[in-house]
């Protein structure tokens, strides 16, 4: 009885991940295999030739580097700014605190499309189009990240703070050495969310980058799709390559990633 349940869960998992398994399977096929009828589910003779070719044609090293720089910088930036702001909102008292927090929240009502054009003009005016600063600078602060960090700092007990103060810790030491390490789960959650979000960022890189040298994962994959349309095994190999880093990171950090469910609502930016 128990084992059939487990089997059922296993089968359900396979069904949910079927498109991804199929993606991997097709990426191992020869170019003409899909032309047969009915189309095969598994490759007749698995080959890694598509991967070797896609690595060179994408060009994967450059795309990986660009996306890693984007996601890495944004990750660090969002964690630092959100932690600092969340800390101020959660643990300090100053006039106008709640009003400012409400104003921060209110910016969430502005849809990305509204901001994209003026942000582009701004970046263009500074001469940052098609550069890393242009790609990264607009994404460095996340209001949802501030909410997340604020909640996390709110949960920390007052005793810790008072004990540290008695030991003579200044404001900065208190934040950097005491409170931030205690909020580590939220920091990891935010870092993962930021990483995942930026690895899949499409609209802003599409607008602000021009040259192939600056292409990030999603844009490069879409470009690859239009260049090699029809050659599915080739495209699937590129898709697997582009997705692999974010898959690995998120599966490892699964537990932390899902901690953010309260603020993300699990909506994918499709």
């Amino acid at each position: 009885m128990l084992s059939t349940r487990k089997l059922g869960l296993g089968l359900l998992s396979v069904a949910v991940s079927a498109p991804f398994l199929y993606m991997v399977s097709v990426s191992l096929m020869g170019e003409s295999e899909l032309l047969r009828w009915p189309p095969p589910l598994l490759p007749q003779k698995p080959t890694f030739g598509n991967y070797a070719a896609a690595l060179a044609a994408l060009p994967y090293a450059k795309v990986f580097l660009n996306t890693a720089i984007l996601a890495g910088c944004v990750m660090v930036g969002q964690v630092l700014t959100s932690a600092a702001a969340g800390y101020a909102f959660a643990r300090m008292r100053f006039p106008g605190r709640d009003g400012i927090f409400a104003a921060f929240l209110a910016t969430l009502m502005l849809p990305a499309m509204l901001l994209v054009i003026p942000r582009f003009l701004l970046v263009n005016a500074v001469g940052w189009v098609d550069t890393y600063p242009g790609l990264i600078s607009t994404e460095l602060v996340s209001v949802l990240g501030i909410v997340l960090m604020r909640q996390s700092f709110l949960m920390l007990p007052r005793d810790v703070e008072e004990a540290a103060r008695l030991d003579g810790a200044g404001e900065w030491t208190l934040f950097w050495r005491v409170m931030l390490p205690l909020a580590r789960p939220a920091v990891i959650t935010l870092a993962l969310l930021a990483f995942m979000d930026q690895w899949r960022n499409f609209l802003w890189p599409l607008i602000v980058t021009r040259s192939a040298d600056m292409a990030v994962a999603e844009v490069a994959l879409a470009q690859f799709h239009s260049t090699y349309s029809g050659n599915w095994p080739y495209q699937m190999a590129a898709a697997v390559l582009v997705t692999l880093p974010v898959w690995l990171v998120c599966l490892i950090g699964q537990r932390y990633l899902m901690q953010g469910w309260r603020i993300t609502g699990a909506a994918v930016r499709l």
């Binding site: 949910v16 991940s17 498109p19 991804f20 898709a239 582009v242 974010v246 699964q254």
Partner: peptide, 21 residues
Amino acid sequence: LLRSALLLPYVTSVVAIALVW
């Protein structure tokens, strides 16, 4: 396993999902 499988579409590159589709 099921949780990991459910996570897949949530974290996959959107363009990749579109291409598989």
